[in-house]
Amino acid sequence: MKFSPEFEQRFTQMLTHYPTRRSVLVPTLLYAQDEFGYLSEEVIQELARRLDLTELEVRNVISYYSMLTLKPRGKYNVQVCTNIACMLRGADELFAHCQRRLGIGHKQTTPDGLFTLEEVECIGACCWAPAMQVNYDFHENLTTDKLDQVLDEYSKKGMQ
């Protein structure tokens, strides 16, 4: 198990930002997850070792944050916000549309491993609702058509 140079460089630098080692844990977990798609046994052991924590402590933290996961996800994590502002502008239909189109439900992954669908809480796009995030990219003022275009693009990208 090896992290990218960027990860290592950021990690080493972040350690200098705080009086305690464990302070880097939360952002580091997210970056580690970005490298491997999920937080594997090895990643947990490695970070526990580096930060003088028990694996239990690391798991306690991981399981608290909704963006962190212990199971692999699809290449593209489609996160549809259905919270109030988006709901008022049709987010439920949007989410249902995703379910139909991808043939999967909340926190499920397409057989080709390309997409994971997730219904998420407010992502801070209320004024541009309805909105979703695919991995970290925002897609706003969505309609079912626009949604289809977006997903098509990711499918294409994912194929090559």
């Binding site: 972040m14 930002h17 705080y18 305690t20 464990r22 302070s23 880097v24 844990l25 939360v26 952002p27 977990l29 997210l30 930060l51 306690n60 933290v61 608290y64 944050y65 909704s66 963006m67 962190l68 809480e121 407010c122």
Partner: peptide, 29 residues
């Protein structure tokens, strides 16, 4: 003066000031 960026990982409660500090210290919010 040093100023550093710090990132969360998905938790509304972490916006509450004392939970925010816990999160920044690398703990559950």
């Amino acid at each position: 003066l040093d100023i550093h960026w710090h990132g969360g990982a998905g938790a509304y409660e972490v916006g509450e000031e004392s939970a925010l500090m816990e999160s920044l210290e690398g703990k559950r919010g």
